[in-house]
């Protein structure tokens, strides 16, 4: 009984310390930098899971440590332990019930609840005023078209692709993988993955299919503020994979419209 009591005390202590550490980590932001509501949702799910799992983690680590120290053999040879038992129905039952309960809890929240939120945000009726951006992933470049503003292939002064988004707006990315310049080649399309680390979601882009990704921007930021605000291909797509990157700018509505005008002018000049 003494061992159980001592172990429990250590466990509670370590769990409490662990929670303090975990909460300070969560306070600093486990996702480092977030710029969309989707990222905040994901971060909250992450935080919930590690908060609940900290005592579980502590239980096993403390038990390993406690066994190592308290029940270590102090003599040179091998000697059977004087205390032998094969089972402990109470312990086994609690273990199984707790592990089932924890998993069911996680499945209900955050898994199902957050997924439901995500599915809801993709419903058509909530997305009538989305900014639509056609994203084309070709080897090895991102192309961003703004069909509502007649902009094809938004680019910066160097001709590199660039993504501008207005703040506090739902954006629907329409994702396709093919090479618009080489439509004759069926092998040109491979799987890419559209990831903006600060946005907290990624979506693979499958050749021959159209996929969607929805985000709701919630702060003005840019690649220059934090390098996590960038488009980055996350699925290996050939030797050019690491170079499939594009800076992102989330700007105020006024700045966004200015940028749109500038891009439109640029395109008029090109054609």
């Amino acid at each position: 009984m003494g061992d159980i009591l001592a172990f429990t005390l250590v466990w509670i202590l370590v769990s409490a310390l662990g929670e303090i550490g975990i909460q300070s980590l969560i306070h600093h932001g486990v996702y480092y930098y977030t710029a969309t509501t989707q990222a905040l949702d994901g971060e909250a799910a992450f935080a919930f899971i590690i908060t609940v799992l900290t005592p579980v983690f502590a239980f096993i680590v403390v038990m390993i440590g406690y066994d190592m120290i308290r029940f270590r053999s102090r003599e040179p040879g091998m000697r059977p332990s004087p205390r032998q038992f094969y089972n402990n129905k109470v312990f086994v039952s609690i273990w199984i019930l707790v592990s089932i309960a924890l998993n069911l809890l996680f499945f209900v929240h955050p898994t199902a609840s957050a997924v439901e939120q995500m599915f809801n945000s993709e419903k058509e009726r909530y997305n009538r005023h989305d900014l639509i951006i056609n994203v084309t992933a070709r080897q090895w470049q991102w192309l961003f078209d703004y069909p509502q503003y007649n902009i094809t292939q938004a680019q910066d002064a160097n001709g590199n692709s660039i993504l501008y988004l207005p703040v506090d707006r739902t954006v629907r990315f329409v994702l396709r993988s093919y090479d618009p310049m080489h439509m004759y080649d069926p092998y040109a399309g491979v799987i890419h993955s559209f990831w903006i680390p600060a946005f907290g979601v990624k979506q693979d882009i499958i050749p021959g299919e159209t996929r969607y990704m929805y985000v709701h921007t919630n702060k003005v930021t840019s690649y220059n503020v934090d390098p996590m605000v960038r488009v980055q291909c996350a699925e290996v797509c050939g030797p050019g994979h690491p170079f499939m990157e594009a800076p992102v700018h989330v700007v105020s509505n006024v700045d966004f419209m200015n940028w749109i005008k500038q891009q439109q002018k640029l395109q008029a000049g090109q054609s």
Binding site: A39, A45, F46, T111, W195, K202, E235
Partner: peptide
Amino acid sequence: VLLADPVVNLQVHD
């Protein structure tokens, strides 16, 4: 367990 959660997975996958 974190990776099994789809919303978290969409960020940390790959």
